[in-house]
């Protein structure tokens, strides 16, 4: 493929640390194969920068197979780029054309401050999970057989769909209000739909929404952008379910 690849101009957000101002910087990459993933193209750029003695572009990545939720780039105005149902690591360079200019920015949200270049601090999501995104189970060794509790297939499927959320934050990055409701609603739904999750359902939704608000995420205005850009296709229905759960819990709350 040598000599037949794409030549691209990259406009990348560079920021040396959380407290320094950042700016968009132009780079050129040449001979990029259409079969490369977007992150491999970034690797090529970083090799160039390292060989020139420059600071490579910092970006999050881990599994590179669309399941860990680490990669997080806002590419040409869209979270995870122009393709649908993929994370940045699953985005192929065949989605671009020779001579293209590609904008690459970090997720932008007050609750996701930039750490360096394209890396943002997403621990706000962890704190929301800590607030209630779990079931308290007995781990003493006498765990019940999973099949002991009959669960309707439709509920199991919906719970599984919600559980496919990888917590990448594309919903927040995409939402014009930087709202985290798709993420939180997926985490609320995956447990609210199952009998194991119903015991703590009330505290869960109240505490998770409370933490979400404390983190400074915006309010959902049902634009639906999050659902479109979500690499796992998490449905907006989860937000409606969370609202239901929240209303029920609020009305029947003890305090």
């Amino acid at each position: 493929m040598a000599g037949k690849g794409m030549n691209l101009t990259l406009k990348i957000w560079r920021q040396s640390d959380a407290n320094s101002p950042g700016k968009m910087v132009d780079y050129k990459v040449t001979d990029i194969s259409e079969h490369m993933s977007f992150l491999e193209m970034m690797d090529v750029l970083n090799e160039q920068l390292v060989s020139k003695g420059e600071d490579p572009v910092a970006f999050d990545h881990d599994c590179r197979e669309g399941i860990c939720g680490m990669c997080s780039m806002y590419i040409n105005g869209e979270a995870h780029g122009p393709d649908r149902g993929v994370t940045t690591c699953q985005l192929h360079m065949r989605m671009f054309n020779d001579g293209d200019t590609i904008y690459i920015e970090p997720w932008r949200a007050a609750a996701f401050p930039v750490i360096k270049d394209l890396v943002v601090d997403r621990t706000a999501f962890d704190r929301i999970m800590n607030a209630g995104g779990f079931v308290s189970v007995n781990t003493s060794g006498n765990t019940q057989d999973a099949n002991a509790l009959p669960i309707p297939k439709a509920d199991a499927d919906e719970a599984f769909d919600a559980a496919t959320c990888i917590g990448c934050g594309a919903c927040v990055a995409t939402c014009k209000n930087a709202s985290a409701m798709l993420f939180v609603s997926a985490k609320v739904s995956q447990l609210a739909l199952l009998p194991q999750g119903k015991v703590e359902a009330k505290e869960r939704v109240l505490n998770m929404v409370d933490q979400m608000d404390k983190e400074g995420f915006g309010n959902c205005t049902v634009t639906g952008a999050c659902e479109v850009e979500c690499p796992k296709g998490i449905s907006l229905t989860n937000i409606a379910r969370m609202n239901q759960e929240f209303l029920k819990a609020s009305i029947t709350a003890d305090k």
């Binding site: 406009k11 105005g77 869209e78 904008y103 920015e105 479109v228």
Partner: peptide, 9 residues
């Protein structure tokens, strides 16, 4: 710097 909201909403 570059946003394309018309692509998703």
């Amino acid at each position: 710097a570059m946003n394309k909201p018309s692509a998703n909403s």
